[in-house]
Design a binder for these strands. Structure first.
Lengths: 237, 237
DNA sequence: CTCGACTATGACCGACCAGTCATGTGACCG
DNA sequence: CGGTCACATGACTGGTCGGTCATAGTCGAG
């Protein structure tokens, strides 16, 4: 399993009323809410815009959720579960090699972001929520889960001697995390793909697989060999 | 020179009135404003809080600046100029080696962030401003300037054969940028240093130079050699 | 038909926001 | 003294926000 969300899953659920809703209405509401939080950060997101989009009354939101914070928490949890289980299901279980495993995780993560821009953007925003106030707990858990996954990978890699054993694990994990999260921005630029537009249009779009692999090759390459040229016989064996 | 800010510098200046202010008052205002934007993102920052801190009337802000946006632009420009010229002045001119030059740039940047937390945090926030609406232009320029600097470094490194020549320059520059910007978070965690608190207390604090160098060594090491262990005789010379 | 449980509603509240402007103050000059 | 200019002020406007609540509709059970 890629990440464990059991902690979050238990708390801050929607009300029973929400689940009693006709499927179609519930989904329209969820879509609109995901849109809103994918397009704006927590503070800027507006319940007013959501209800206007769905065409329901302001008060209805409070029939479904205790408040903005609970709604947000639910959405983030939902998105995280969806993305992580997508990656999990796409990962073959028998890839032992560290770099390949890392590469594949990032690859499927990227595919998810392009095919489900609403969910991807929501999680991306959550990652960068200022770590203060209401957002803190969810964002911190999201971050912690990702870091934990990477740490497991790195530690296994060191045990297998695929990775050097003189690494500062904390730093390496941190660096991998940053490169993973921010890759989205690079891909957006390189492919001329606007995630915001994709969210607004509500449609995912397929991704140029070859080009994506090329970028991931660069990333894996950088991580494996570093940037240095072969010239002055550095301390490599 | 590390970065060029001439474009921005020309526009969106404070009014003459602002410069006519007694030195002490002007500085109290600037300090309070920097505090506010260092602690909150653009949208959340409140002119009301600033004037309350300084002890002046709301209307006075509009005697000094055309509005919130212009104030912000001025502050970011000011902070960027200060930081970049600090780094520039601290960099010896004769360091040719790519990794060392990069390392030193990051090193002095980090020293700046710890000693001038207000300015450092403001720039950090600006970096992560959502690229839409009012903020767009300044944030984009800030980002562009940093990327340009890194690109120059990388291209020189490739010319000198310090770096491999099969690199995807765009990606490498992007990766360096992300690692540079986010290093702040890692250092904060490792050193148990809260930038927010430092801003609130208004005091910079000296930094454990040895520990900082240790982290930078890891970073430079990762970039130079990569993570791979020596074991299976990879394609390194 | 009546009752009670459930759900939808939107006017309303208090808060905070950026920005405006009429009024006032005080310094300098003729 | 009167006039002018620079500057300070804070009540006020119009807007948005999250959240509340009295009211009303709906529907199945008795």
């Amino acid at each position: 399993m890629v990440q464990d969300w059991s902690v979050t899953r238990a708390e801050a659920m929607p009300t029973p009323t929400f689940f009693n809703l006709p499927r179609e209405k519930r989904e329209r509401f969820l879509d609109a809410a995901l849109d809103e939080f994918a397009l704006h950060d927590y503070r800027s997101a507006s319940l007013g815009r959501i209800v206007a989009t769905v065409g329901i009354a302001k008060g209805s939101v409070y029939q479904y959720f205790a408040g903005k914070q609970e709604l947000y928490l639910y959405l983030v949890t939902l998105a995280a579960e969806t993305k992580f289980s997508f990656i999990d299901a796409s990962l073959p279980g028998d890839v032992a090699d560290f770099f390949e495993r890392f590469r594949l995780s990032v690859y499927h993560g990227a595919r998810f972001d392009f095919s489900r821009p609403r969910l991807g953007s929501l999680l991306y925003n959550a990652t960068y929520e200022p770590s203060g106030a209401a957002t803190l707990e969810v964002a911190a858990q999201l971050r912690a889960a990702s870091l934990q996954y990477l740490r497991t990978l790195v530690e296994a890699g060191i045990r297998n001697a695929e990775l050097r054993d003189d690494l500062d694990v904390d730093y390496v994990v941190f660096a991998l995390y940053q490169l993973t999260v921010s890759l989205r921005d690079f891909l957006g630029e390189r492919f001329g793909f606007s995630f915001k537009d994709a969210v607004r249009e509500g449609s995912g779009s397929p991704i140029d697989d070859a080009a994506l692999h090329a970028v991931l090759d660069q990333m894996a390459d950088l991580l494996r060999q570093g940037l240095a040229g072969p010239e002055p016989g550095r301390d490599v064996t």
